[in-house]
Amino acid sequence: MSVIKERHEDKEATEMRRFLLILLMFMAVSPAARAQEDNKVSGRFLLTDMSGRTVTDEMYRGKIRLVTFGYTFCPDICPTILNTLSAALEQLGPDRAKVATLFISVDPERDTPAHLKEYLNAFPDITGLSGTPEQVAAAARNFKVRYERQKPEGDDPKVYAVDHSASIFIMDREGNFLARMPHMSAPDRVADRVRTYLSPRKAEE
């Protein structure tokens, strides 16, 4: 336990240094370069849906996408992010049909399509995606999501945590990056943000 905690603290220190570095970079870099940096998040993926079919981001063409990464076998506490997304969808009312909400598992070994299907019974508007470890790694790379499988804490090799970055991604109808929101965003803020992308864009002044 203590070993893991220390490692987390190290990670935090690294994160902090990285943040300061990024902060300095942002102060120096032009807006154009900033936009370019943002474009680096790509929504491309080739994964498996809950019925075992191969899917790509192309199949959600025409829909705004809400995307989050996670896993279902959270060993001690489970984020309420799917709750947040499903509450946000509810607030969108009929507009929710214009949104594809995707939960991409970073634990494909345990989160099989069949398991995701059963799990997501609790969130009927959310599609669970999984794949081979390589496919999941590629998707995470494109979204700039990091994840790391932890060592099992007990004797059971099947009981392990997967640390992962937890954000809500909003992608446009072509799958391009629009926004990244913190995982603790309130549902109405997520819904509001999606609405701004659903409404016709105002002419640039």
């Binding site: 990670k11 807006p31 001690d76 506490i77 984020p79 970055s165 995982h183």
Partner: peptide, 28 residues
């Protein structure tokens, strides 16, 4: 717009890898 982009990127940089959950580290 540039400000929003910057703020979004900063927020992203600020959010560390969440250890399985969303509570602040050590908050168990």
């Amino acid at each position: 717009r540039a400000f929003i982009l910057c703020a979004t990127a900063l927020a992203a940089a600020l959010s560390p890898i969440a250890a399985a959950g969303a509570a602040p580290k050590g908050q168990r």
